[in-house]
Design a binder for these strands. Structure first.
Lengths: 357, 357
DNA sequence: CTCAAAATGAGTTGCGCACCTCAAAACACC
DNA sequence: GGTGTTTTGAGGTGCGCAACTCATTTTGAG
């Protein structure tokens, strides 16, 4: 009836006795210190295996005694999503200080590779681990690899540099996110045929490009009745996004779907509702006359738009989860503990009105 | 440029000095031990506040020295979702034993209130905390309250007993989950009108009833073109689910949507694909002839059905997250640490083909 | 067999805190 | 002022491990 998953009470002393060596030797093996014969190493490791012994993390942490410092290198500028991540880091402060962990945020222009690389370079002396919202660029990759070589743990956050030797990536697969957006737009449009608009910040941003790629993939293969219009670039600004989209909506009367890849949501929504108003003047349109609108991230704004029915779905990555996962991964790396991949994996959330978090 | 979120290096000794008292007195205040004048208590607490001091968890854990034991009271029988939770608990074994935490699973008939209550009664002697998949019944509520009175931490898992004094609920809002399912069926059906079928395990199960309630709520208020047929009860069994659904599909040619509330997914899918085959014999039907199928949980089966396009969406609660959240909450309760509500909250996930985890 | 190098044992210290004891001091009451 | 009670101080012990020193033993090379 009761199945035991774990039982332990052993200490290093027990391992030493079982292996027939002293505590000092076990310690040497455990921390890969030199001066132990290979055969002895094997005997100790066997004893550890046999008992599936795990050093008591609390004791280890206490004995090690070092306070660890982590840096979060984040974009300067008023990005609401990044702000959310920082807010959630702030909420962890009690948790962090109870573990003697220091987390500091370093704001920098992550969009300028040389500035970002320069910001990273100096950090390895001051920090045990670094989480960075990274631009995928050779200079940045080199800076990351230098940090890793210097013994600093590095995780990329939200935006990855797969070619670097970073230890971990905390974020979503943006191609899959784009595919998800495409499937949603296509399915929610239903049997209607028509055109689909895309508003992005810039196609030069890796994450935006990947999302667009995934989106187009799905549209082409599964929704032949929908034709995708050339991507509009709104630079993640409300004003410009509104402007370019309004012009497009004016030119094409048969737009049935809209994918907003990045920020600038306020402007996009404005252009869309203006259009709806105009049409209402002409005919009393039902749901089927409306444009299906899918965007990214759950912010105060998108939350409101979802509740109002202006927006149909938001593709989201949980910023709180990302903040905590990054800290946990850095901590696990610093302690030499294994990473719980399943726990740290960031999911692509589909958020609609009724499952708003 | 660098903003400090946390800095600490203080110890209890520093607090004692600042408050002008001895270590012993600080200890008394910290652990609510008697024998300290109110005025002194205030001074000590002020010193703690002033420095936002947090006791070092590792040191506290080590000094306290107690190994903690938690029990997970789960349904016996082959429920794949519950099996997943247990699997994820198993994956944590390293993490658990490194913290000297023992987690054991207790299988019982959670659907029989007296059996469940009896299982719970004996547990408070052996365990510091208990997670239970609870049936909402007065007897069970009483058993939970008894455990709480005995000083045991209790969290309800997946299924709640809101009227009890359990410390926490780890699971989703099933009404909102039903609403989400309703919105998905309605939106994916599009402009078509017709009938919608519901297959549940039993309307007597609180979670199923709540989901159905939420589902109907949305259908009634937002999709007047769709009429919901009486709920079929499949007892979460494949055979029976297939049978009742097949009969319904035979009687109503204009079924355009299907909501499977619980298990029995295999049977539901079978009935659905048989119908599709029959129709294909008559006319070469496009997507618009198909039945929109929304169910719950991501298992090997639903994953396959989503990939095949048989199923359109699965409403899911992350079993790994639930397992870990339950453990973390029990641990936080045992240690007297605060619970990170945001972290432990279980979301309603919408899983479609392209965002399959 | 000799000697240096390598491997190992034995032991110490301290991390920060919980928990305990015992004595001293402060206080309240008559 | 004396007595009993409450409050406080001082100190010790140990949790399990990391990190270190120094003495001793074993090993391998010559």
């Amino acid at each position: 009836m009761a199945e035991t998953l774990t039982t332990t009470a052993l200490t290093l002393k027990d391992i030493a006795r079982q292996a027939g060596v002293s505590l000092a030797t076990v310690d040497r093996v455990l921390h890969n210190r030199p001066g132990v014969r290979p055969d002895t190493v094997r005997r100790v490791k066997e004893a550890i295996e046999r008992n599936s012994f795990q050093p008591h993390v609390a004791a280890a942490e206490l004995a090690r005694g070092r306070a660890r410092r982590f840096a979060f290198v984040m974009p300067s500028g008023p990005n609401p999503f990044m702000q959310q991540i920082q807010d959630y880091l702030g909420e962890m402060s009690g948790w962090l200080s109870a573990r003697r962990l220091g987390v500091e945020t370093v704001a920098t222009d992550v969009f300028d590779p040389s500035v970002l690389a320069a910001s990273l370079e100096g950090l390895s002396d001051d920090y045990d681990g670094i989480a960075v919202v990274a631009l995928d660029h050779p200079g940045v990759r080199a800076a990351i690899d230098d940090l890793v070589d210097a013994g600093t743990s590095v995780v990329t956050l939200v935006s990855d540099v797969p070619s670097s030797r970073r230890h971990h990536y905390v974020g979503i697969d943006n191609i899959a996110a784009g595919r998800t957006a495409g499937a949603l737009v296509g399915r929610l449009v239903g049997q209607r045929s028509g055109k689909v608009a895309i508003v992005a910040g810039s196609q030069g941003l890796r994450d935006h490009a990947e999302r667009i790629f995934g989106f187009n993939q799905v549209m082409a293969s599964e929704f032949p009745g929908l034709s995708v219009l050339p991507v509009l670039e709104g630079r993640d600004e409300d004003g410009r996004s509104e402007q370019v989209l309004a012009r497009l909506l004016g030119r094409h009367a048969d737009i049935v779907g809209l994918y907003n890849v990045g920020a600038g949501t306020q402007g996009v929504a404005k252009a869309l509702s203006d259009k709806a108003l105009n049409e209402k003047a002409l005919s009393d349109a039902g749901r089927d006359k409306q444009v299906v609108f899918v965007g990214h991230d759950v912010t105060a704004l998108t939350r409101r738009l979802l509740l109002q029915g202006v927006m149909d779905a938001a593709i989201s990555q949980n910023p709180g989860h990302e903040a905590r996962a990054a800290v946990r991964v850095l901590l696990a790396l610093a302690r030499g503990e294994p990473i719980l991949r399943e726990q740290e994996k960031i999911r692509i959330d589909i958020v609609m009105r009724d499952n708003l978090p």
